[in-house]
Nucleic acid binder design. Structure first.
Lengths: 131, 131
DNA sequence: TTCCTGACTTGCATCTTGCAAGTCAAGAGT
DNA sequence: ACTCTTGACTTGCAAGATGCAAGTCAGGAA
């Protein structure tokens, strides 16, 4: 394999610290945005992620989806159907990141407006109502 | 300037989303570890950061300290003395990240042990008692 | 006045990202 | 059955970020 090695076996933990370990996984500019999209929409397909405002590159997207799946933070809504149209959801482990995300958003809104004036209030990082 | 361009003017915000904006700043593997060290010790010098378990490279450390200072998440304990021995502290803005860090640690301890068995309980991300 | 030692900077190799083009297979339509 | 379309990826290469080893530089201590 050349490109995009993924799978959690490949992670080398920098230390035994929980915070450091969390960052070993989601400490980059994209992973938490994928999680965020799932909180906001409940479910999301590859192309919906791809078309998000931030504009993630498709190779990065694919590799992050693979990593997050291998760590079971996300999973396909229908594990045994082919990929096309087969969206992703949060697993319990992924959904458990919600408080962390919320605190991060709260901090951002309270302290980053000064640098980034047109930042928006968060819609409410809440899955849309089912049905 | 060749190396290590820093200062918040250089940040290009990917979107108006607060979470995305937070990640534009602290969305990497090192920044939050600097913040963590400050929570745990109250104060920290360059070499103390450098000697942390995770082993940050000195060029990265210097550039992160510069960026976090320019965003006023951290500051020198004594702004007008020379750098040597002049530690860093959290500003109010930096200290406000505590809930987010705590939730992240909580999540990590609850959900990452399975992949990283020897992860340690967090000491208590609380500044040591003064004096 | 020299020596030492923190606090950085620099150069270069390597790894990760970003971007533009593919490729591939499952349906939809005919 | 056969082509056409379109999501879901891969690949190649350029550009940027990181990691490592080696400096540089200034402020005390001796």
């Amino acid at each position: 394999m050349e490109h995009a090695a993924t799978g959690y076996e490949g992670i080398d933990w920098r230390s035994k610290c929980p915070i450091s370990s969390a960052l070993d996984i989601i400490g980059d500019k994209w992973s938490l945005l994928i999680i965020r999209d799932l909180f906001m929409h409940g479910t999301r397909t590859y192309s919906e992620f791809r078309d998000s405002d931030e504009g993630i590159a498709t190779n990065i997207l694919a590799s992050r989806l693979k990593l997050l799946s291998s760590l079971e933070l996300i999973e396909r809504t229908d594990p045994d159907r082919p990929a096309r149209g087969n969206a992703f959801t949060l697993t319990e482990r992924g959904a458990a990141l919600r408080p962390a995300l919320e605190e991060l958003a709260r901090w951002s809104q309270a302290h980053l407006k000064e640098f980034h004036a047109d930042m928006v209030e968060i819609a409410q990082p809440e899955a849309e109502v089912e049905q």
